[in-house]
Design a protein around this nucleic acid. Structure first.
Length: 419
RNA sequence: GUGGGUGUAGCUCAGUUGGCAGAGCACCAGGUUGUGGUCCUGGGAGUCGUGGGUUCGAGUCCCAUCAUCCACCCCA
């Protein structure tokens, strides 16, 4: 084999690719139903946008970015996530000057240079939702509800929601100091000690048992929230209760990106191995200012399409794949093939999905093609039919077959397909 | 970046102490020169990941390398 897909890039081809579209469709529908509009943003941006937006101290920025210099000498980076780009676009085009919040969804690939493993890829597919311009906790709950609806629409039953609040610019610094004070007294490796100084909250997320054991008595964020953050957090939870969306409070949930404030949440699935997070999001009330914009709060989430597909498969859910076409043309001989080509075109123009056998296959091979296409009807056309000005219309389920004048094929099939 | 597992036909895999490279599925053709699914018969296919070494002889043993999978760190 001469060429292979780049390392860590999953590909979806038929028949499995149908699941990919179904996942996107489920979330797009949930977002659109909640009044969110589509936004198309670049796959690459100025490197500085991500460095400042996502955070200089994050793993994503320090070691996972696909960064390169373009021919004009500019440093550009393939997006490692969507939020920074969506917010940049919102500000650049003054979408926030209209009525708030600005509600947007988008989808596509993101890129992180990591060592691939189950559910972790260098090109990952995300579905993304952002609500920009309000601090109303109802919008926090709304984004959660959209993600939840998407999972439900796909039939997933084992998705767990974990919820936390990271505080704001007023209460986070005190908590951060208290946490650092605690962490500095622990027995930690060099990399983790550095993290204590740069981004202590992320130490709480460590999965290693030897670290975890030492964190049992660590100060937790919910105990250090200021009055307004506490009230915000309580309101979000009350609203989730109203919607009967079950969640689990997780005071150690911090997430890896620097811009999160107040509400953070994560969805995970128990059957996915080590990479179990299938979606996550939170509030980013300071991000706009971080990237040079006005004060503009926001909240959003991304769900991982690749991992959701793995979850669908892990739960053994069948995604119904409709037949490729409704009608399949079976020509016998060159003259018939030419006539059939036009007939198939007519069927398509009439809104009937149709395909035909190509490459002068034998009748038997062509019928096989009809069978595999999933079509409910075959149209068979040979010398005898041409001479009579008819074609044989065959119901592939029942085997019934009858001659129909060529001029009436389209209307006849239209009737038979709706009945 | 670190650790471990696996690379043989399109797919899933078998291959004994080193001795002619195989099966199932899929695909194609025929059985039926104008009829699919089931059945029967036949067929095409592989530089055994790649490069080197040991040997009369390597899919099998050794070394290197690449790819892939799983895990750590971290994240969707």
């Amino acid at each position: 084999m001469m060429f292979q897909a780049p390392k860590g890039v999953p590909e979806y081809y038929p028949p499995r690719s149908a699941i990919f579209l179904a996942v996107r469709e489920a979330f797009a529908k949930a977002a659109a139903n909640a009044g969110y509009s589509y936004i198309e943003v670049p796959v690459f941006e100025d490197t500085a946008l991500f460095a400042r937006g996502v955070g200089e101290s994050t793993d994503v920025v320090t070691k996972e970015m696909y960064t390169f210099t373009d021919r004009g000498g500019r440093s550009v980076t393939l997006r490692p996530e969507f939020t920074a780009g969506v917010l940049r676009s919102t500000l650049e085009h003054n979408l926030h000057q209209g009525q708030l919040p600005v509600k947007l969804w988008t989808t596509g690939p993101a890129f992180r240079y990591e060592q691939p493993q189950a559910g972790r890829y260098r090109q990952l597919q995300q579905f993304n939702v952002e609500a920009i311009g309000t601090e109303d906790p109802a919008v926090d709950a709304e984004t959660i509800a959209i993600a939840w609806s998407g999972y439900r629409a796909l039939g997933l039953t084992k998705v767990r929601l974990m919820l936390n609040s990271l505080g704001c610019r007023n209460c986070r610094p005190q908590y951060r100091a208290a946490l650092q004070d605690f962490l500095r007294r622990l027995d930690l490796d060099e990399a983790t000690r550095q993290r204590v100084e740069i981004n202590p909250l992320r130490v709480l997320d460590d999965k290693r048992p030897e670290v975890r054991a030492q964190l049992a008595d660590a100060p937790l964020i919910p105990d250090h929230l200021c009055a307004s953050c506490k009230s915000h957090h309580d309101k979000v939870r009350t609203l989730l209760e109203d919607l009967s969306i079950p969640w689990e409070d997780n005071p150690r949930l911090v997430r890896g990106l620097d811009y999160y404030t107040r509400t953070t949440y994560e969805f995970d699935h128990p059957d996915l191995g080590a990479q179990s997070g299938i979606g996550g999001g939170g509030r980013y009330d300071g991000l706009s200012e971080d990237i040079g914009g006005p004060r503009l709060p926001g909240i959003g989430f991304a769900v991982g399409v690749d991992r959701i597909i793995l979850a669908i498969e892990a739960e053994g859910l069948a995604v119904d794949t409709p037949p490729r076409v409704a009608v399949y043309g079976v020509p016998i001989g060159e003259e018939a093939a030419r006539r059939m080509f036009a007939l198939v075109h007519e069927l398509r123009a009439a809104g009937i999905a149709a395909d035909m056998a190509y490459g002068s296959k034998g009748l038997k091979g062509a019928m096989k093609g009809a069978d595999r296409s999933g079509a409910s009807h075959a149209v068979i056309l040979g010398e005898r039919d041409l001479a009579a000005g008819t074609a044989q219309v065959k119901n592939l389920q029942t085997g019934e077959q009858s001659a129909v004048p060529l001029a009436e094929i389209v209307t006849t099939l239209k009737e038979r397909l709706t009945s």
